[in-house]
Write a protein that binds this DNA or RNA. Structure first.
Lengths: 245, 245
DNA sequence: GCAAAAGTGTTGTCCTTACACCCATGC
DNA sequence: GCATGGGTGTAAGGACAACACTTTTGC
């Protein structure tokens, strides 16, 4: 927007100097926070770090940073992600802004939350300060700031999105078995699924490429490995017709 | 978030003064913009106003305002809504933030977009300056700033949400006929729906209360009027199980 | 040979879709 | 009586849920 309601009068003139207008606006500190999810040992995990604020000593916080001048929010989030994980080409999407006036003990700070999905094994954590680590989502608590609320919201967001779009592949290795895929869905949705129906579902979607390789070193019959068919997915995204409460 | 990546060193001390930390953060002007949708003459409309920036002379913009100190984003959006429409208890939800550095000609301004749904006939527009008016969504173009992009995004958001939750009732009068409800869905989704199937669908959801009244002054057989069963809806919200790409 | 998980089909139910005729009202 | 939309039922097809046995590997 760009117009202050209080300023309005019946026949005001058009504003010529937009710069002057904006200079008069109040300003707030703005950050991005990333809920970076990974999948390991059949558990959904999120990347956290020990807070370096004394009042949150021992509590975890999400990775985030100040938004720089002339930086888009997406860029800022991506910068945080890359600085910590070293990864490019990572799934990243904005969830929503959090603006409670007391959410930061240092004063008013508004943050925009991002959800990111990556394969834990495809990267090395870049900085091991502050006990950067993967924490199981289900056992998280006592986070710094409003970060628990942010994680909860991002997790709900993920649960919903993963049922509408095949995002789960971002959390798996390039080659994966159907068992791994199902474990992932079960972990994220918190339900158990029928194996045969699950396989039929994905078979009928035709989004998996059979690469004619098998699992190695498993203590049971090895399963086939698949890749995700990104091309096919890109050319046939969901059409949104049908009311369904 | 709250930690600047560049600041990190192997054994830094915990930060005691959070206020001092935040004072050092760069700040940006922050606004909210509302895509306020209404339904009239079987068309989805959005509330717009003539921009008062000279460089956008004659172009429409959304309603919005600066976010005040210590104001939540939701509050700011609600304030804008109430100032212009005089309405309380209006549906309002955050869509997402827009942060392109050049989106405002006066310099960097980040905005958070909100989607709002209200019944056009239940309110009087509060201020008639700047040609505040309802504009058909389908014929909007040449808006000020990035407001066309914001409207498009909010419209997509609405198309999706209205299929998951019964939001449409916010756009209708308290009492409405099934025909009006169907017109609404057809207008928003841009499809035509089978009348019998549509009625069956809503009948089976059991979210409509038959109030034993009929339409008046229609030049054909009058239809029954219904109210939306808000209580029932609140106690039986959607359960999110099932993968569905 | 035993444990552990892979792989595979069928059936019933439910939901969705497609489709046509009579009815009530205003004019 | 005619135009306009209101109101209703049925049948076919597709999607989903439930369910058990055989196979392959490591040990």
């Amino acid at each position: 927007m760009k117009k202050n309601i209080q300023q309005e009068k019946p026949h005001e003139h058009l504003i010529k100097d937009a710069k002057k207008l904006v200079l008069a606006y109040p300003k707030v500190p703005l950050t991005v926070d990333c809920a970076i999810f990974g999948f390991e040992e059949s558990q959904l995990k999120v990347l956290v770090i020990k807070s370096d604020l004394e009042m949150y000593d021992g509590h975890y916080s999400l990775l985030g940073d100040i938004v720089q001048d002339n930086e888009e929010l997406d860029e800022a989030a991506y910068r945080v992600l890359k600085a910590r994980t070293g990864m490019n080409d990572v799934f990243l999407d904005q969830v929503r802004a959090f603006s409670h006036p007391a959410r930061h003990p240092g004063g008013r700070v508004i943050t925009v939350a991002y959800c990111s999905l990556l394969n834990i094994n495809h990267h090395q954590l870049k900085i091991h300060d502050n006990e950067l680590n993967w924490h199981s989502v289900s056992t998280l608590k006592d986070m710094a700031f409003d970060h628990k609320e942010i994680v909860d919201e991002c997790y709900s967001w993920l649960q919903k999105r993963i049922q509408e779009h095949p995002l789960g592949f971002n959390l798996l290795p390039e080659k994966f078995s159907l068992r791994e895929l199902q474990n992932l869905y079960e972990a994220i949705l918190g339900v158990s699924l029928d194996r045969r129906n699950f396989r039929k579902k994905f078979a009928s979607m035709d989004l998996l490429i059979d690469i004619n390789e098998m699992e190695q070193d498993v203590p049971h019959r090895p399963g086939k490995l698949y890749k995700f068919n990104f091309e096919k997915y890109e050319t046939s995204k969901r059409k949104w017709i049908g009311i369904d409460f």
